[in-house]
């Protein structure tokens, strides 16, 4: 019953002038409930201790182990080998800077994106009064914000994005969804104009070509497509302010989306 897996791994060490990018084959016996986390650790423990890859929580929660698995970006830790053919091919995620072998620098990329979109709740933080009870919020809204806060920044949506592959300054679905998270949050005092400055351009919502692989590969099943649509409509309407009648813009602004209940 047990298969012998042929795992082909991309190898390249950018710090070693002798190193050339190539594929290397390893063979591992499969067993029950085996994940790529287990398989890669067996390779490192038994075959090549220098193999570079990133794991942390190994439970699909931290987002460390994004890689291209048989041509498709995904989290290695929650990919079970039984769902893959005997021959498994692993590449590092494209777009991000390669650190070595399967390890890429998602941390710096997302930090840079976070800085560009000013990814924090914009309010007067010093106004927090410890003697007062918290500002009230509807539970349904809290759930909607959390839905977008579930992003683990694994980078799969960026690696699968046609635009991001062509232009290095594209913010990608994860960043746009992150802006959408703050737009949804009444504690963030930014207005449409502020958001327009951040993502109302080619680097943001208008750069998207609508291929939508981002949502297909998202391991957390975050509704990236919806959020992109909501933000794009909101900012497109903003750019025709003064051209279309105000009533029409207001009518269209949140029609049928999750914002309909919360904001005018």
């Amino acid at each position: 019953m047990s298969r012998r897996l042929h795992i082909e791994v991309f190898r390249y060490n950018p710090l070693d002038p002798e190193s050339k990018p190539h594929m290397q084959s390893f063979y591992v016996n499969e067993y029950d409930s085996m994940t790529l986390f287990i398989a890669l650790n067996i390779i490192r423990d038994q075959h090549d201790p220098t193999l570079q890859f990133d794991f942390c929580c190994r439970a699909g929660i931290c987002g460390s182990c994004g890689m291209v698995i048989n041509g498709r970006p995904g989290l290695a830790c929650h990919t079970q080998t039984k769902d893959l053919p005997e021959h498994i091919v692993l590449h590092p995620l494209p777009v991000f800077k390669l650190i070595g072998d399967l390890s890429v620098d998602t941390g710096v990329w997302f930090r840079d994106a976070g800085t560009r979109i000013e990814a924090w709740v914009h309010n007067d933080h010093d106004s927090f009064d410890p003697t007062q009870e918290e500002a009230r919020m509807e539970n349904a809204l809290a759930n909607e914000i959390f839905e977008l806060d579930r992003c683990v920044e694994c980078g799969c949506c960026i690696a699968a994005c046609g635009t991001a592959r062509m232009r290095t300054d594209f913010l990608g679905a994860a960043s746009i969804a992150r802006v959408a998270r703050f737009y949804l949050d009444p504690r963030d005092e930014r207005n449409v104009e502020n958001y327009y400055e951040v993502i109302g351009n080619d680097q943001g919502v208008f750069g998207c070509m609508g291929l939508l692989a981002c949502e297909d590969v998202c391991p957390k099943h975050i509704p990236l497509q919806d959020q992109l649509g909501i933000m794009r409509r909101m900012l497109a309407l903003h750019s025709v302010k003064g051209i279309l009648p105000k009533a029409l813009i207001e009518k269209l602004a949140h029609k049928g989306c999750c914002h309909e209940n919360h904001k005018s």
């Binding site: 106004s127 927090f128 918290e134 919020m137």
Partner: peptide
């Protein structure tokens, strides 16, 4: 309450 002020979407 402080982290709520900063943006945590508590249930």
């Amino acid at each position: 309450r402080e982290v709520a002020h900063w943006g945590v979407p508590w249930n």
